[in-house]
């Protein structure tokens, strides 16, 4: 495969977010259910269900993760966070039974990322959440690795369909490793090819013309 000269900023590891990472910005846009524990004066227009000037205390609303993280304080209770369904007890049992059957693309698609981010908020269930995420990853990793190392020259869309974003990027690196290895085995690794950027750009131009 081509050694690409464009590499996007990688997402942060664990509970950290990477400031410039596009993935992390999209991850922190996921909405979380929460309840306001103090009023937000003069911001009532953000809550479409009511006409009042303020957002009163005790309003249930959905907030993106970045905002919840910014407003949340351990000492002064401004917000109380609720767990999204996938991290609650019921789903944790499902993951405990067989992590491989769950469609993480549908449930996430940032299942691991969001789960780690939830640990920023004080919740008595945090240890269980952390453990479930870890065990889920371990339980699914082998299959992801196997399929990425053995699907050569075939349509992989069915294989990645149910993977979380993190797993997809692992799958992709596995595939590019496999492809490079195959090229080397065939003695073609010194074959010069057109840059994939140039090729894709040309493809797009053709579709632009058709549109």
């Amino acid at each position: 495969m081509d050694a690409l000269s464009y590499l996007s900023v990688p997402p942060g590891i664990g509970m950290e977010e990477n400031f410039f990472s596009l993935d992390d910005i999209l991850l922190s846009h996921e909405r979380l259910p929460c309840r306001t524990e103090s009023a937000f004066p003069r911001l009532g227009f953000l809550e479409k269900s009511s006409d009042s000037r303020d957002i009163p205390e005790g309003t249930k609303m959905e907030m993106p993760l970045w905002l919840a993280k910014g407003l949340y304080e351990k000492k002064r209770r401004v917000l109380s966070m609720e767990l999204p369904k996938v991290y609650r007890e019921g789903w944790r049992t499902v993951f405990g039974a067989d992590p491989a059957v769950v469609d993480l693309q549908k449930m996430g698609p940032y299942y691991y990322g969001l789960g780690s981010q939830m640990l920023h908020f004080d919740s008595p269930e945090n240890p269980e959440i952390a453990n479930t995420i870890l065990q889920t990853f371990i339980g699914r990793f082998r299959r992801t690795m196997d399929s990425s190392q053995n699907a050569y020259n075939e349509d992989t869309s069915a294989l990645v369909e149910r993977l979380d974003c993190l797993e997809r990027s692992l799958f992709k690196s596995g595939q590019s490793g496999l492809n490079s290895f195959q090229l080397w085995e065939k003695g073609r690794s010194s074959h010069l090819t057109a840059s994939s950027l140039v090729i894709n750009y040309r493809k797009r131009k053709i579709t632009d013309l058709q549109a």
Binding site: S38, A39, F40, P41, L43, W66, L67, G70, L71
Partner: peptide, 11 residues
């Protein structure tokens, strides 16, 4: 009591 709103905008 205005502080939460100010912080909200700041975020």
């Amino acid at each position: 009591e205005l502080i939460p709103s100010i912080k909200f905008r700041h975020c």
